[in-house]
Simulated scan of single mutants.
Amino acid sequence: MAIALLSALMVFAAAARADDDRDHDVARRAVERGEIKSLAEILQAVRDKLPGEVTSVKLERERGRLVYEFRVVGARGRLLEVYVDAATGEIGRTREK
């Protein structure tokens, strides 16, 4: 599952827009400064808690904090947004899309 997940993320990353490139730079610098965990660390920490197959990942700023937003197709085929605190790796909220 981890290899499939990473492969899917690589495909989505390859199709990213210019805004996503900027997000990548923001994320890279924040990881280098130790402000947030890398996507690989976050995935390792939460993969058993994510309720399905990850289809995309974004890094967003919410209330002054960086948050990874995962889009996940759940077991029943429903699309979910799962928000994970980028600094701590804690799952914040999950909502159906």
Rank of each mutant, 00 (worst) to 15 (best):
I3Y: 10
A4K: 11
L5F: 05
L6C: 06
S7N: 14
S7P: 01
A8I: 13
A8C: 10
L9F: 07
L9Y: 04
F12Y: 11
A13K: 10
A13T: 12
A13I: 01
A15N: 09
A16E: 15
R17H: 11
A18F: 12
D19C: 07
D20E: 15
D20L: 08
R22L: 14
D25K: 10
D25E: 13
D25C: 06
A27P: 06
A27C: 05
A30R: 14
E32F: 08
R33K: 15
G34K: 06
E35T: 08
I36V: 15
K37A: 10
K37S: 07
L39Q: 04
L39K: 03
A40G: 05
L43W: 08
L43I: 15
Q44Y: 07
Q44E: 10
D48N: 13
D48L: 11
L50N: 05
G52S: 05
G52T: 01
G52C: 00
G52Q: 00
E53G: 00
T55I: 11
T55S: 07
S56D: 15
L59Y: 07
E60D: 14
R61I: 11
R61T: 14
R63H: 13
G64D: 08
V67R: 00
Y68N: 02
Y68D: 02
Y68K: 04
E69D: 08
R71H: 08
R71W: 06
V72P: 01
A75K: 13
A75F: 12
A75W: 08
G77F: 09
L79W: 00
L79D: 09
V82H: 01
V82T: 06
Y83K: 10
A87E: 11
G89R: 01
I91A: 03
G92C: 00
G92E: 02
G92W: 00
T94I: 14
T94G: 03
R95K: 14
K97A: 12
